[in-house]
């Protein structure tokens, strides 16, 4: 019975993980939530963030016996959620899920974001986006260099991004190579994919949603927006290699209001990390399939990561102004 093997493997892995966990935390009493934990998901039900958050929540309930209540607080790609989360009690019973840009570029780009990075305690990241520049295979382009070459001949391509940040990057590309795009900002990766599929735009940005189409040979990653090349498209150069010195990838992140108890932060972060890093969980399989696989950052390292994001966003904005 394959199910039985699966279950035994899972138990074994969970046992090992639990044992390891017990060793590392044996010195202190483990933090236990006093009541149900509410998770505010900054995106709509059914999307990638929502799916991840709910799968993680279900697994945490199973492993830790915590009661977890997910709900969706949508608006402005997570900004509305952040604004609401900030005001909730910092006892570890209210956490939110969003992407790191909500506490970096998006926060700084908005004239009235209504919160600052220090309003939050950052709990754990789960996975990273597979940010790439994508086009239909039928266009005949192999890498972004082909697009630039065609654009230099005076062709103006329709280029879809998902945020003002992408428009900024496009502007930098235009400046560097002396080309012109008609940049359009669409709401969400799904819309960009639709527009590319239907031919409404020539190329666009995808944060991982394009993976299936790329593997199926329908679309091609022309460039990577990450610091490194994309896992599935090693031939596509990074934007940095193309002379645009910015990594525009983002990570998915759990946050809490500022000042939650240190043991709560650690317990939550460890628990989330344990679920995501265990390859037998649905949550882990999901982030491996749709995104860059488990990418858990917690504690001081996470604080440093967020600070660095803010520094990068500020430089990008300074360059643009």
């Amino acid at each position: 019975m394959s199910n039985l093997t699966k279950i035994t493997t899972r138990l074994a892995v969970a046992g090992i993980a639990a044992a390891a966990f017990a060793v590392t935390t044996s010195a202190q009493a483990e933090w236990k939530p006093k009541g149900p934990i509410s998770v505010m998901i900054g995106f709509a039900a059914g999307g990638g963030t929502d799916t991840q958050a709910r799968l993680i929540a279900a697994e945490l309930e199973k492993r830790r016996g915590w009661k977890i209540i997910p709900s969706n607080v949508t608006g402005k790609g997570g900004v509305v959620m952040a604004r609401k989360l900030k005001k909730l009690p910092n006892d570890g019973l209210s956490i939110g899920m969003a992407v790191t840009e909500v506490f970096g570029y998006n926060m700084l780009a908005s004239k009235k974001a209504g919160y600052k990075a220090s309003d939050f305690t950052y709990v754990a990241t789960t996975t990273s986006s597979q940010m790439g520049i994508v086009a239909n295979t039928s266009k005949g382009w192999k890498t972004f260099a082909d697009v630039i070459a065609a654009a230099k001949k005076g062709k103006v391509f329709k280029f879809a991004g998902m945020s003002a940040k992408h428009a900024d990057i496009n502007f930098l590309i235009e400046q560097k190579y002396g080309v012109k795009f008609n940049t359009v900002v669409l709401r969400g990766g799904r819309k960009v994919m639709n527009a590319i599929t239907a031919g409404d735009v020539d190329l666009g940005y995808g944060a991982g949603i394009q993976t299936k189409a790329v593997l199926a040979g329908k679309m091609v990653n022309l460039a990577s927006g990450l610091g490194e090349r994309l896992r599935i498209s090693p031939n596509a150069p990074t934007l940095m290699e193309m002379g645009i010195p910015y990594a525009i990838g983002a990570k998915f992140i759990f946050v809490a209001p500022a000042g939650i108890p240190a043991d709560a932060r650690k317990a939550l972060g460890d628990a989330i990390g344990e679920v995501i890093n265990d390859k037998t969980t649905k949550a882990s399989q999901f982030v491996s399939k749709a995104y860059g696989g488990p990418d858990v950052v917690t504690g001081a390292k996470l604080d440093a990561y967020i600070n660095n994001e803010i520094v990068i966003a500020k430089t990008l904005m300074k360059v643009m102004n």
């Binding site: 006093k34 009541g35 149900p36 009661k67 209540i69 009690p89 019973l93």
Partner: peptide
């Protein structure tokens, strides 16, 4: 019981 927040799923 603490606050209602803690009991809202009980």
């Amino acid at each position: 019981l603490g606050s209602y927040r803690l009991q809202k799923a009980t």
